[in-house]
Design a protein around this nucleic acid. Structure first.
Lengths: 172, 172
DNA sequence: GGTCTGATGTCAGTCGCTGACATCAGAGCC
DNA sequence: GGCTCTGATGTCAGCGACTGACATCAGACC
């Protein structure tokens, strides 16, 4: 993270990272699948957090509302680590390869979310579509949270985006 | 495309591609930014097609309906080249790096779509959210189109997914 | 015939990443 | 205390993607 912030992602070599960590390049690649993965090592826990809250939502909740439970929990956790989240977002925003990796992590989240909804009895294609739309809401809210300086409440931004979504489709 | 289908993407070296094309490796990289980009060289025209149809939609259309015009036009064109689209989808489905690249192309499309909606007078965050949701609909419909053997009508699948979307949110 | 330009070839080099094998420190056992 | 076993790390050689610098060459235009 230090080096990626100082030099930028591209200009940082794995050799430099290894050196600063007091390890070998080979060892680096034993801990991380590739140079990008460093910034995404927490993705697993993040996914479990989000999906877990969806699974535990009351049975009476609609698919969208169940998904929203997961999004809100995830947003709350990121809110806690705002500084870290900002630094990380800046690094990613500066590099296309990292954006690609982030997108596939989001896609993986979307798949996991769809699976969870299906486990709640939601049928296809509603499950996949809800999952995709929920992640779209999350991304939109995240972007707004990061872009602003003031530091508004991330979970609240998620709620706002969900409202927007409803307005979009009911207005047809 | 031939080599990627025969050997798989990873096992194909740029040297082999260059040889079959009767060119040099260096020349390959002058035509394509990287090994993956070969499969995405048509992305620019595709984007213009989609966005163009959104821009030309009647002013009276809601954001979602305007976006739908673009999706339907894009789906119709892919329908024309079904065989090519299938082969390409298979290659991409077999490789994670290619999926990453495809996702960022979709994201780029989403951004362009949001811009177009904004030019139609749609305000934020409705523009971004509509764009994201529209692309989610497109992806979902595309997946269903490719997965089935029968070869159902792609534009019709897009319409179906749009209906699903409405149902999702109005059911709250 | 001459010049100019854009595409291609050549070459050397960097960097990400991997496989194979050696080393070494600590855990647990006798 | 000595032994073995295991997991983490180091070492080394090598492949393949990608780049910069310079040379070459064919066709366009004058």
């Amino acid at each position: 993270m230090e080096l990626y912030s100082e030099l930028g992602f591209e200009k940082t070599t794995v050799a430099e990272i290894a050196e600063r960590a007091g390890l070998t390049e080979r060892t680096f690649f034993r801990h991380f699948a590739d140079k990008r993965e460093v910034l995404f090592s927490g993705a697993g826990e993040f996914q479990e957090l989000l999906v877990g809250n969806v699974a535990n939502a009351p049975d009476s909740f609609t698919p969208i509302d169940a998904a929203a439970e997961g999004l809100l929990a995830a947003a709350a956790v990121l809110q806690q680590r705002e500084e870290f989240a900002r630094q990380r977002a800046n690094i990613i925003a500066a590099n296309a390869e990292l954006q690609e990796r982030e997108l596939i992590k989001f896609a993986s989240l979307s798949t996991a979310l769809a699976d969870t909804l299906r486990a709640r009895g939601v049928t296809e294609p509603a499950a996949s579509l809800t999952a995709e739309v929920a992640m779209a809401v999350f991304r939109t809210a995240f972007e707004r949270w990061i872009d602003q300086v003031g530091g508004r409440d991330f979970p609240q931004l998620v709620r706002d985006s969900l409202e927007e979504l409803t307005a979009l489709t009911t207005g047809r």
